[in-house]
Design a protein around this nucleic acid. Sequence first.
RNA 1: GGGCCGGUAGAUCAGCGGUAGAUCGCCCGGUUUGCACCCGGGAGGUCGAGGGUUCAAUUCCCUCCCGGUCCA
Length: 931
Amino acid sequence: MEFGVEHYAIDYFANRGYRRRRCKSCGKYFWTIVERETCGEAPCEPYTFIGSPPVSRPYSLQEMRRAFLGFFESKGHKVIAPYPVVPRWRKDLYLVSASIVDFQPHVTSGSVEPPANPLVVSQPCIRMVDIDKVGATLGRHLTIFEMGGAHAFNFPDREVYWKDRTVELCVEFMGGLGLREEDTVFKEGVWAGGGNAGPCYEVIHSGLEIATLVFMNYRTLNGVLEELPVRTVDTGYGIERFTWLAQGTPSAFQVIYSGILDRVSELIDIPNPDEELFIRYARYSAWIQPTSSLSLADARRKAAALAGVDLERLQPVLERLEQFYKILDHTKSIVFILADGVVPSNSKVGYLARLLVRKTQRILELLGRKDMLPELAALQIDYWGRDFPRLLEMRDEILELITYEVKKFNESIVRGLAQLERELAAVSKSGREIDAEYVARIYEERGLTPDLVVSTAKKLGIKAPAMEEVEERMISRHIESPAKEKEDERLVEAAQLTKDLPKTEKLYYSDPYAAKFTATVLASTPKIVVLDRTLFYPEGGGQVGDTGVLRWRGLEARVTDTQIVDGVIVHFIEGDQPPVGEVVWGEIDYGRRLSVMRHHTATHILIGAARRVLGRHAWQMGAKKEAESARLDISHHAPLSRDEILKIERLANEVVSERRPVKISWLPRSVAEDRYGFTLYQGGEAPLGQVRVVEIEGWDAEACGGTHCANTAEVGFVKILKVERIQDGVVRLVYAAGPAAHRYVSESTIELESRLETVEEEIRQLKLGYGRLIEYYQETVLKEFEQASTSPQQLERIERVVADLAARIWFYSKSYQKEELLGSTRLIFDFRPVTNVTYFASMAREAVKHNSPAAGLISGRLKTGMLIAAGVNRQLSRHGLSPRSVAERLGAGKIRYIDDEVVVFEVAEKDVRTIYNDFKRLIENLQPSEA
RNA sequence: GGGCCGGUAGAUCAGCGGUAGAUCGCCCGGUUUGCACCCGGGAGGUCGAGGGUUCAAUUCCCUCCCGGUCCA
């Protein structure tokens, strides 16, 4: 795309004596007052401002921002607050990459009034495209920067200003800073983005492009330019670059991050470069344009050669410095993105956040500072929070997300490395080598960066490819074909039918509780009916379309679904077909609609609750509201705990019982955004200039086109049925509201109760079974052995084995009566019929077989008193409670068995409770000395 | 949204048309009065789900589900 000279030759230039020249170095055209051979932009010429700034004084970034906003304000521009960096109001972009994005596409296409005209904003912008160049170019490339945008929107009937005034304002602003017009060059260029395009001037001073003045008056449609009714002045002043120019430091990072520079360099231990050498090198740093054909190392060498600097001396410091700059830049981006409620994940904008975290974390690891990211982020939050308070509001959420993401990354690396090492061990054994293809594949499959793979290979003595080769390989692997979207056949048919029909009047907005209406048929087929007006809500915003009936002259069509195509509402029918022109009676399935409305309002209540419980990073990622249940997908990094789910549910039901009114209002976009903030766009892109705001008083406000209850009380009751993680960074709540919720609760209660009964019965049977098993062994098996004339020693041994087995079953089936915790001691108690002494001893032993203090008391009634088996394990006897002392203190008569953990004895006492309480007291009186 | 990789014992993984394996953990025994000690034995698997090809599928093909990862 190119524009002819007529697009650039303006009166202002003619009056001021500018001439058009062609740069002998880059071949581009430019406008200048004084005679010059090149355009002056580096690398056609070096940076001249480094070491000798042309601005009258060393403005700080904050001062420069103020100066910029103040100047344009004084020229009739209204200052507006910056927008978020995540443009939730459009779905074609992940990040705000320029100030004009704030106003696309609705303002620039003319369908929406701008918030002010002309206006000025200092908009934080994020661009990921140059991420690998950040640092090496000493600040010319950044992932995050502030674009000073001065915008004027010229409507056919209302001209604000156009090219001449734009250039005049630019020259005047620069003049105020002490930048001479004679040293300024206006370079011709073309700008295109966001579906718009136009000619532009790049404003060059001292070698640096510091502003771009775009005159956006075209729309690009399939590669063809079409003139726009609204001509937009889109100027972008690089606030960071102006500040860099004002201070003339070797790198822009020194001015952008001046407030935290020292602290960060101390934290990650970055040495200071030789100032004089660094300045000389920096002047030529614009030659560093690493591309696939010129590696970073070569580019750096070239710049050093031109500057006459000995790279050997500068290089080691330079590399650390570039990493330092990357860290500064990336952490700022991370903090801004997360502040807008992005959760790192593996798709969409979440992936960009993840990419930034991982790239930064990788550098920190190389520097031996792998735990430092949260601390660095905290510094950035506190520093930038002065200018952008939302960072401070989101401080805790941001730091938690970063900590969590770093942890996930580490786990992924550990896993990946273990696997890689196994694989490489096999390679090493076979004496093979690895190639660039292999390294690139490992990166794509497991996220192990090429440097990690290569260094691991070298460690194992495997020959690995050079990094350049790998990078080339990775670029060539990314030739992909765009995917096609599937289209709903029914809607294709509907689109044919509705092409020339007027937009349908939406009766459901005037009264969401109405059920009956009359309308005239505008078009019909055996499957589709279009009316001039309707109460049937078409599917949209996650709310299902209405069903119902249409009646006329004794005939009837059942409406099975309702959709909307370009403003025309389409009823899908079964049954008779109404003729065009017929007046029909319509009636929606009222109960179904009411239930859907409850679910829809419940969704808004729940998103408010989720944001309060989980944090403000929780955004609605999708939703579906039906008659029986609804679901809501929210962005959140971790699985929800039981506690969090209960809290969300409880809060939601509180809002229901508080009977909050649900208010609906149509507001101009900018007014709505001003009043409610950008959390309005929970439901995604809002298509209209006027925004329909659904507000639950004091709880939640969203741009939404759905039908809602008039009061939260009508929702009745909200029950969360299921919570699942449907994707990395997204959890789904499934819930029901009102009668549907009650149905679920009562049905599931009945089911639970019957299942509980079954389980209880099963447990009873099992215990009975165990009892029988034990009896069987003790009575039958032992008798068998006795009769088989087994020797007494063998018999004793067998008795012991059987008793141990029975005791184990007893213990693991928890067949005992009671389990108690006395301090740190676990006490197991049971009362059983007396079978034999060995079995009692085995049970006591089993009860105390733990590493923590444990005691057991098994009692059984004898004719003369009781048989007691007491167990105290080593952890207890260490504190002075030995089996023998227990026997003595409990008044033992005849001791039947004793070892170092267990004693079995008879007592005359007949009351179980007395013995149990005595035993408890013995344990409680021990000096508790925790290990 | 798309591409690529993976899903086998409680954990980490090997096997890749013909009777399912290793290491750690677990249980038992021995050794040892303190340990991530040592020795011996044992339990534990619908080989993610469904369909197809085949005499035979964990293995090959298709669909789906789940996890990972890269790119927009």
